[in-house]
Every structure is written in structure tokens, then in C-alpha cells.
Computed example of a mutant assay.
Amino acid sequence: MATQKRANQADIAERLGVSVSTVSRALANEIGISDAVRRDVQRMARTLGYKSKHNMAVVTGDKRAVALVPLGSATSGLSGFYFGIVEGMREQAAAAGMALDLRLVNESAVTLELIRKQVAQANAGGLLLAGIDGWDELAAWSTEAEVPVVLVNGSDPMMRISSVSPANYYGAYMATQRLLDAGHRKILHFTHSYRPTIRQRQRGFEQAIAKTAGAVGTVVHTGERHTKELLADLLAGKHDVTAAFIWNDIAAVEMLEGIYGVESPLPPNFSIIGFDDLPLASIATPRLSTTRVDREAIGRGAVRLLAEHMDGEMAVQQLEIGVSMVAGETVFPG
């Protein structure tokens, strides 16, 4: 059987359209070679499996990454969610020998110019964006500047930027199925449509309802009713439902007292299930039944994926982290 030819410096030079001398100097980290050329050569060497006698760790920003974490989420009820992700990032970065610069940013003010400045200030060769979805200019800049980007708890439906997120569709399907298995056939889903990740939860809910004979699903968006307004509607009997799947734990916990209070007009077996398993879900009374997201695994997966891209992997990847059900105390037989 023919053996596969080993890659050599001439192969790298041919792929990149540069001289063999340039390849040799870039691999040796010699002065006089631009950072962009050095990155190209070393990434191509890794891609082709070229074995160099030199240490191919890029001496500038190639082993440095910056992670932009949303300030609003980090200081609000979602702080537990992003704290877990950040801890996972830190753990994996330390294991991979990556210098990770974590920075809080106002997610409503994230622009391409802000991203450029943050990457330049950190001298970073890669970027993690937490809670932010991809857009055209970001994808174009990432390609042009050769700075790999990974969206953390975000997505790019056009598949130009890699991402790591919970299994939103299947998690929502499981949450809805749990209510169906308990005997409920009239179920409300409270959600919002601002982000592609959350829209996947609505899809999972609708699919579970569609597969169950006699089941009827009602969808209410945050743009139509706020949490307190929806709770008032439920207590007033405006929705003919016996259970509710709420898009996150924060909104679900806000409704618990009204649903299970002594003066609630709802039947005692009215059931509610959330999503995320935030710390507040475990201290709520009663303990919220919910869907657990492994936030640390999201952080670890994002850093691993970014490291692959920084090492030359070009394929866009959409990594989903599995979820699990938390029994809690708010799902009753229908």
C-alpha cells in the first residue's frame, strides 16, 4: 500500500503563494516576517500536518483570546448563567495554555468598531462573544482580519461563524413532553422572538405538541404581554390551559407566587416548567421544575472550538451542549 507523502515547506509555500524562504523564516519565528504571514504559514503547517523542529506557537496574539461578556446579563438575574460559562472558559483556557482576557461590555452597544478596539487592546488572535448573535459585518471582518470568532450562547443561522449553545430545540421538546407525559393537553408557551437561540425553544415546543394527539399549544410572546401581564391573564382565566412552559427560569419564578399562592384561582395541579436551571430556581418555593443547561460545558466547548480555529480549522461548526431535566416540585398530573 502506498504511503502518504509527508508535507514539506514547499507544499506550504505553494498553498500560500509565498517563497520557501518565507515559510522557513515564519516557522522559525524570525524577525522581518509580518504577523499576518506568520499566522498563515503556521496555520497551514498545522492543517497539512507538517512537523517542524521549531516551536510553532505564534509569539504575538495567536495564543491570546479576548472574551466579551454582556454586562447587562452579568449583573442581572442571568448573572448565574454567564458566571458558569465564564468559569468554564477559564478552566479550558488554562488547560489549553491560552491567555484569555475577559471583558464586560454593554451588549446593546456592541459594534464592529468596539470589537476591533477590544481585540487590538488585548493583542488577541481569537474572539469569544457571549450572548451575542452573528451579523454580516462581523462575519466579513473575521474573515478579512483572520481573527476567528466563536459565539457563546449565540448562533449564526447563516453558518458563517462558529457557535456553542445549549440544545434549545431538543431541550424545549423534552420540557414540553414532560408536561404531556403528566397528562396535560392544553399547554401555554411564554417566549420571545428576539434571538435565534430562543426561537429554537418555540420550535421544540410546537413539535412536541404536534406529535401528541389532542394536544393544543398556545404561544404568547413577550412583545405581546410582559410576565406580570401574562400572570394576570392566567389568573383571570383568559387562557384555557392547565400547564405552562416558560422560556427561562427568571420569568417562571416571577409567576410562582401568583400561581401557587393561597388566593390563586388556578387548580392546585396547574403545572409550570422553566429553562436554564438558574440558582434562583433551586431556592424558589416551590422548587421550580426546569431544564438544566450545563453552562460550564458551554464555556469549555467554546474555548476548545476557538483553539481549533486558531490552529487552522476553517470549517464553521455549530456545537450544541445537551440539557437534562430537573424534577422540581411544579409539575403535577394533569
Rank of each mutant, 00 (worst) to 15 (best):
E113G: 12
S193E: 12
L256T: 05
A172E: 00
W247E: 09
R160G: 10
E206N: 08
I250N: 11
G183K: 03
G131C: 07
I209S: 03
T222K: 06
D156Y: 06
S142C: 09
V253C: 09
H239G: 08
D156F: 10
H221D: 12
V119E: 07
R203I: 06
E229D: 14
R195G: 01
S162N: 08
L188R: 02
I209R: 02
Y173I: 00
R116P: 08
R178V: 03
F205G: 00
Q200R: 10
E146M: 14
S162M: 08
L127T: 08
L235G: 04
V253H: 04
Y173A: 06
V147T: 15
G154P: 06
L256F: 13
M255F: 08
A232L: 04
Q121R: 15
T222A: 10
T143I: 14
E229N: 01
H189F: 08
F190A: 05
H221R: 11
Q177H: 13
N153E: 12
R160S: 09
D249W: 05
L129W: 14
Q200A: 14
H239E: 06
A122R: 03
P166I: 11
A215C: 07
R195F: 11
H192Q: 14
T176L: 02
Q118E: 15
I209F: 02
V150E: 05
G125R: 04
A213I: 03
E146N: 15
L127G: 01
W141T: 07
R225H: 13
I198L: 13
Q121E: 15
H184R: 03
L188M: 07
N168A: 10
A140E: 14
T222I: 00
T191M: 06
P166G: 12
N248Q: 12
Y170S: 10
S142A: 15
T242E: 01
K211G: 00
F205S: 01
A208P: 05
A215D: 00
L188W: 02
S155K: 11
V253R: 00
G237M: 09
T176R: 02
V164N: 05
L235P: 02
E224D: 15
I246D: 00
G131E: 12
K117C: 08
A140Y: 02
G237N: 12
L179A: 04
L127H: 07
L114C: 10
R203M: 14
